[in-house]
Every structure is written in structure tokens, then in C-alpha cells.
Design a protein around this nucleic acid. Structure first.
Lengths: 135, 135
DNA sequence: TGACGATAGTTTACTATTAAACTAATAAAT
DNA sequence: ATTTATTAGTTTAATAGTAAACTATCGTCA
């Protein structure tokens, strides 16, 4: 078993993700949102509250406030006050928002899939499992 | 074999890297540089010219200008004019810069390795193999 | 109940980032 | 040789991101 260079793997992985983001950004912008706003939309079903979103996306709460405000103005999501806790806002994708999110993720997936294609389906499945455990 | 959701792999991976960066940022700051400046230092040996750095790090040239200026002021790198092409600046790590870069990367590796500890050794090795193929 | 600490989300005020325009040097074409 | 196009790096001007402080609500313990 060869010794693993954690830092090198990290760096390769980081550069990979960043270059995919930069490649795809102009196409995402054409959908009417920014890359980070797409990330917010993509987590909305699983994490419908701003504070949770800030947590899973590793971004500060004020940034979420800004993105949510823009996404709401653009008609991609709406908010409801949680009756059980009046502090909380439940965020809900509009049909238009869901359509746009799906398109955006498709763009991202397409660009990423080009790299992922270096793995066979079994390896891709393996990678998914491992990353789930790390999350 | 279930169909692989590329977007999901993407998102898991992205969130993993971002959370590691956020975890480590305060410790890196204590070394006297910012996270993105560390990334610049880390690529300096392999990519000693600002334009190349902007390319591999997927960041705009003016950002590199800013980071390099700060790193130079902090004594972590120096620049030489390339005699063959007077437009180009060759960037060189100072001994202090190299020491700091090594420490910074160690912090990053340690934080990443901590996440990696959720996997058993066989799984870690598997992940390393998969990510290396993607790089 | 009411006082205290914690939590959700926002606002404000400041810093970081970057697109666009610029200078300087090189390369290629005429 | 001189024009033209290209490239390296910087500056400027504007936008994006965020820490700190704020409001409102909730939970709990006396």
C-alpha cells in the first residue's frame, strides 16, 4: 500500500471543481442566476431554511439572505412563515425555480461528467458512496 | 446497478471541500496569510508566473496581482524580471515563504485527513485512487 | 410570569474581489 | 522599418461578500 499524499489529492480535487465552476458560470448566468444562487436552489428541497442552507453550503448567513432575496425577486422561490416558529422562513421552489435549477444542475453535471467519464460506472458508484460518508 | 447522479456527486464533493476550507481558515490566518494566498504559494514552484497562476487556480489576473503583492510585502516571495521577456515576472518563494506554505498545507491536509478518518483504510485508499483518476 | 440565554433572519458598514481599461513588451505581417 | 495583433501584468472603478450588531421569537428555569 503506497503512502497517500492527502494534500496533493486535496489540491487536485479543488482545482478540478474550480475549473468546472468557471467553465460553466457563463451558461448558468444565461439562465438568470449566479452560480452560488444555483447552489442555494439545489439544496432547497433538503434544507428549506436559510440557517440550514448557510450550514450545508459553508457560507455566512448574510450571504444566504442576499441570494434568497434575489431568487425570490426572480420568481425562483417563495417563502412561507413557519406557523410553529415565527422566526423561521420555509423556502419553497416555484415550478419556474425547479425548472431552472434542473437546467443549471444539468449544465454542471455535463461539465463534471466529462471528467467523471474517466471512471467506469462501478467506480462512479463507489465514489458517490465514499463522498456520502465524508459529508 | 443504480443510475449515478453526477450532480449529487458534485454537490457532495463541493460541500466537503468548502467545509474543510472554512474549518482551516482561522489557523491559516494565524500563519500571516489568507487561504487564497496559500493556494498561490502552493503553486509557485510549478507555475512561477502570475498569468499561469491565474490559469491553474481559476482566478482572474487582478486577483493574482493583489495576492502576489501582499505575499511579496509579507516576505513570502520575491520577484525577478525575466531577461528574455521583460513583461514577465518570475516569482520565487523565499525560505520563510516555503516554511509558511509547508505549514499551511499541513494544516489543510490535517483537516482533510480528519474527514477522511470517517472511512476505513481500505476506503481511503479507494477514494485516493478514484480522485487521482479524476485529476 | 418573567428574566435570561439561545436561535432565525436581517441590516449596516466595511473589505475582498473582479471586469474593463490601461501600459509596456513581444511577435507577426507587410 | 513600421504597422497590427497578442500577451504580461497593473490600475481603476464598481460589485460581491461578510463580520458585527440588530430585531424578533423561542425555550427554559426560577
Amino acid at each position: 500500500m503506497p503512502k497517500i499524499d492527502v494534500g496533493r489529492i486535496w489540491s487536485l480535487n479543488f482545482r478540478l471543481l474550480m475549473s468546472v465552476i468557471v467553465d460553466v458560470a457563463p451558461d448558468i448566468t444565461e439562465l438568470g442566476l449566479e452560480t452560488k444562487e444555483l447552489f442555494v436552489l439545489a439544496e432547497l428541497d433538503e434544507h428549506p431554511h436559510p440557517a440550514e442552507l448557510a450550514g450545508v453550503l459553508s457560507m455566512p448567513k448574510p450571504s444566504v439572505t442576499v441570494y434568497v432575496k434575489r431568487l425570490e425577486a426572480a420568481g425562483f422561490l417563495r417563502r412561507e412563515i413557519d406557523c410553529a416558529d415565527l422566526r423561521r422562513h420555509r423556502l419553497i421552489l416555484t415550478p419556474e425555480g425547479r425548472k431552472t435549477m434542473t437546467r443549471g444542475l444539468a449544465l454542471l453535471s455535463k461539465a463534471f461528467a466529462a471528467r467523471l467519464a474517466r471512471l467506469n460506472p462501478a467506480q462512479q458508484s463507489q465514489l458517490a458512496t465514499l463522498l456520502e460518508k465524508l459529508g
